[in-house]
Write a protein that binds this DNA or RNA. Structure first.
Length: 824
RNA sequence: GCCCCCGUAUCCCAACUGGCAGAGGAAGCCGCCUUAAAAGCGGCGAGUUCCGGGUUCGAGUCCCGGCGGGGGCACCA
């Protein structure tokens, strides 16, 4: 045996097959096959990357996982759409351009080429004919068009309000881009607030539906992502209650506990809300102004500390409690948020800890109206919010059920017009404008006569002016403002002098609809072809990282619902199933430059080859678990691939040999493996598929060396099954095997092996005999043995009789053919 | 504080609707090969299924209560 036959050169193999795949182009999706109904479709999608440098281990993992299912679907005869592109607008390119005095496109498109070459080497079954880049004018023309359509429907609008501002990136941020600790998710700087006029998408319009559809998605999406979305949308049921105010307009509050209305001893409005300024008496105006100065000094980080002492100021006015006519004072405080609910609350200090803290700080009365058996909050300082008996609550007195109490109060309020049951959401509208250059310009013209004027559709795209280097330096206003020739235009309506909107769109807008553009990426007459959307949509499996659990997935769901309401598609949710991939870490920690524990994908590929790295990532754990590179063994993967490959060289029977007469034991292993693999693949348990393939390799090796021998047709059948299974993860090795087995490339173009049900049936199975649930004997029985026969056989077994030891048999549970449990 | 997920051999992980705790890999140990070592090849072992209750003929699996880890939301009324 020559050296050449025990090993293959992983790098030579990569160079050998890349041009072959390029020529055969086996992964191009055929629209006609799907629109004609000739073949059933599958749309496989993985999150397209941002082009920052070359691919890293995280990309490698998600592409490897994604390719398993794509290739499997193709084997099963589906027409598979598996596109790839780039999310190529964004800040890193702009920052690099400033640093290097160049155009952001230089960095962007340079990296795209690098990544594209790496992806091809990595052997993912993408349909490259559908490649797109969101920074191409041909793409962002349609991003702009969608913006205008949203605006026509009242779903894109401008408003002035306090917004998140990143002092480092010098731009506004969406709520979703501010981390829980008040820092910028991109650069870590402490986010501040600014009062600015900005563009918003009206995501709140769809809050209810975005929430409700999660029930259905729960079945096919990974649970933690559904949970994260549900928390983010933050639906809460309650009531609006209106309080009359002496000498002012009435105040409406949102509360989840209308049943505690009799315990409301004061009201609080958000200090920074317009409402506070409207309500305040002349006497107290100065006090409120002074308080506002204090409040604005506090940073967001301070505000987020929940144990901060309560502060506030009396507004000098009183409201009337609608259920008992009681006169209660109205206060302003920063513990009430201006942009949640109505920006005002009724305070029930006995049953809400925040209100109680405030009452104690301001010496306001505390009145218990639900007796839970715990100590009175007025004395304990601990608010009670559990179930209990209502007291001092008029018609509720004596009732002891919270749900019934809430229901009854809502009925009373609705009857006399003081309130109504309602639902409130934590979700806010999506702030989409950014004061940066490298994004899609907002296609609106501001005219002193006509106001906001949309750019006419036939003038799209509004292309970015040519700016570079220092022109892009952040200065707090959009860099586009400096392009005077670009900014100053004629008003499309009146022809007078006007200016372009100088903001660009959040890059999450670009990625909210890219999966539609893949359907017809070169169409210059429409954003996408609705007929193709009907044929290919929705996406059957989307794989991506948890970091997009709320942001991108929520925005894409929102876009999909709007496109449906525009009549362009006929489905409600974009992603039928969602699988999140874990992170690749090293030595228990996230890979990072500062920790010096980064693992270079390129180096791993050079050392072990593409297939071994892919196999390692798929085999290491279930897809959603993190992979610690210190715990896995790419060398072991490479070893296994060599072992598998050697099988193909040992087979001596001719291609096409009928396996029917082959070794039955090996055939059974093969058929069982293929059968189970299909089942596992459909539930995305890819790591187990690899383990099963390893078992088949081991069994085949044994058959060759010490069983039926290499000439047996069952060995060929097994080796071919290995090649096909392996091609899901290790396409180069599989291709080599397929060729050595005497077939034409490509293994990707063959079909999934047909399973013979007769070979799935065992000749004999081991039935376990338990006594008192403990295993006391084993019997070899026929798989179709009757329960009566199995029971008789078990009781006749000498070992079993010995274990029973003459005791009386009280009950026998039989689960033919696997188990008998005897109770004595 | 509220809401989700997880806990199996030294490590990463299997175990279909409750039915023999173990598939696969890593590390370890023992052989073979080698002048020797590494690589390679062959083989081997290992358990309070986190803890405590419950349901059941039978629980890693279902229920309740803890402990530990991870994640989401959070002055959201």
């Amino acid at each position: 045996m020559s050296e050449n036959e025990v090993h293959y050169d992983v790098h030579a193999v990569e160079e050998k097959w890349l041009p072959v795949w390029e020529r055969l182009d086996p992964f191009r999706a055929d629209d006609d096959a799907v629109t004609s109904g000739e073949r059933e479709k599958r749309y496989a999608l993985t999150m397209f990357p941002y082009p920052s440098g070359d691919l890293h281990m995280g990309h490698a993992e998600v592409f490897a996982l994604h390719d398993v299912i794509s290739r499997y679907w193709r084997f099963r005869g589906y027409e598979v759409l598996n596109p790839m592109g780039w999310d190529s607008f964004g800040l890193p390119a702009e920052n690099a351009a400033i640093r290097n005095d160049e155009h952001p496109a230089t960095y962007t498109y340079g990296n795209i080429e690098t990544q594209a070459a790496s992806m091809k080497r990595y052997g993912v079954s993408f349909d490259w004919s559908r490649r797109l880049h969101t920074s191409d004018p041909e793409y962002y023309r349609w991003t702009q068009w969608l913006f205008l359509k949203f605006r026509e429907r009242g779903l894109a609008y401008r408003k002035n309000s306090p917004v998140n501002w990143c002092p480092n990136d010098q731009t506004v941020l969406a709520n979703e881009q501010v981390l829980a600790d008040g820092t910028c998710e991109r650069c870590g700087a402490e986010v501040t607030k600014r009062e600015l006029t900005q563009w918003y998408f009206k995501t709140t319009e769809y809050a209810q539906e975005l929430h409700d559809c999660l029930d259905e998605l729960q079945k096919t999406w990974i649970g933690k992502v559904v949970n994260a979305q549900r928390n983010w949308i933050g639906r809460s049921e309650g009531a609006h209650v209106t309080f009359e105010v002496e000498g002012r307009d009435p105040i409406t509050v949102f509360t989840t506990r209308p049943d505690t209305l009799w315990g409301a001893t004061f009201m609080v409005v958000a200090a920074d809300a317009k409402l506070a300024a409207e309500l305040v008496s002349d006497d107290q105006r100065q006090a409120l102004d002074d308080y506002l100065v204090e409040v604005r000094k506090a940073s967001d980080i301070d505000r987020l500390a929940t144990d901060r002492p309560k502060t506030g100021v009396f507004l000098g006015v009183h409201a009337v409690n609608p259920v008992n006519g009681e006169r209660i004072p109205v206060w302003a405080s920063d513990y009430v948020l201006a942009d949640y609910g109505t920006g005002a609350i009724m305070a029930v200090p006995a049953h809400d800890q925040r209100d109680l803290d405030f009452a104690r700080a301001m010496d306001l009365p505390v009145r218990m109206v639900v007796d839970t058996g715990e100590e009175d909050p007025a004395t304990s300082g601990i608010a009670t919010n559990g179930n209990g008996t209502y007291v001092s609550s008029g018609p509720l007195d004596g009732l002891a059920d919270k749900a019934a109490g809430i229901h009854k109060v809502v009925e009373l309020l609705e009857a006399d017009g003081h309130g109504s049951g309602t639902v409130n959401f934590r979700l806010r509208d999506w702030l989409l404008s950014r004061q940066r250059y490298w994004g899609a310009p907002i296609p609106v013209i501001h005219c002193p006569v006509d106001g906001e004027v949309p750019v006419p559709e036939d003038q799209l795209p509004v292309e970015l002016p040519e700016l570079r280097g220092a022109d892009l330096k952040p200065k707090g206003t959009s860099p586009l403002g400096a392009a005077t020739e670009w900014v100053n235009v004629e008003c499309p309506t009146c022809g007078g002098p006007a200016t372009r909107d100088t903001d660009t769109m959040d890059t999450f807008v670009d990625s909210s609809w890219y999966f539609f553009r893949y359907l017809s990426p070169n169409d210059d007459t429409q954003a996408f072809d609705p007929a193709l959307a009907k044929a290919w949509g929705p996406i059957d499996l989307y794989i991506g990282g948890d970091e997009h659990a709320v942001l991108h997935l929520l925005y894409a769901r929102f876009f999909t619902k709007v496109l449906r309401d525009m009549g362009l598609i006929d489905w409600d949710e974009p992603f039928s199933a969602y699988l999140s991939q874990g992170k690749v870490i090293n030595n228990g920690r996230k890979m990072s430059k500062s920790l010096g524990n980064g693992v270079s994908l390129g180096e791993q590929l050079d050392e072990f080859g593409v297939d071994a790295v892919r196999l390692t990532l798929v085999f290491a754990s279930p897809p959603e678990d993190n992979i610690d590179w210190a715990d896995v063994s790419p060398a072991g993967s490479a070893r296994f691939l060599q072992r598998a490959w050697r099988l193909s060289g040992d087979v001596t029977s001719a291609p096409g040999t009928d396996p029917a007469g082959g070794d039955v034991a090996l055939r059974k292993v093969t058929h069982k493996t293929v059968h189970e693999a299909a089942h596992l693949l459909e539930s995305y348990r890819f790591n187990v598929v690899v383990a099963r393939t390893m078992e088949l390799v081991n069994a085949t090796r044994k058959a060759i060396d010490s069983g039926c021998g290499p000439a047996d047709p069952a060995v060929r059948e097994a080796a071919e099954a290995v090649a096909i299974l392996l091609s899901l993860v290790a396409p180069y090795t599989a291709e080599e095997m397929w060729e050595r087995l005497g077939h034409q490339p490509s293994v990707a173009q063959t079909a999934w092996p047909t399973v013979d049900p007769a070979l799935l049936v065992e000749d004999a199975v081991t039935a376990v005999v338990q006594i008192q649930g403990k295993v006391r004997g084993r019997l070899e029985v026929s798989p179709d043995i009757s329960e009566a026969d199995l029971e008789a056989a078990a009781l006749a077994d000498p070992a079993v009789q010995k274990a029973i030891d003459g005791r009386e048999v009280r009950k026998v549970i039989v689960r033919a053919p696997k188990l008998v449990n005897i109770v004595v």
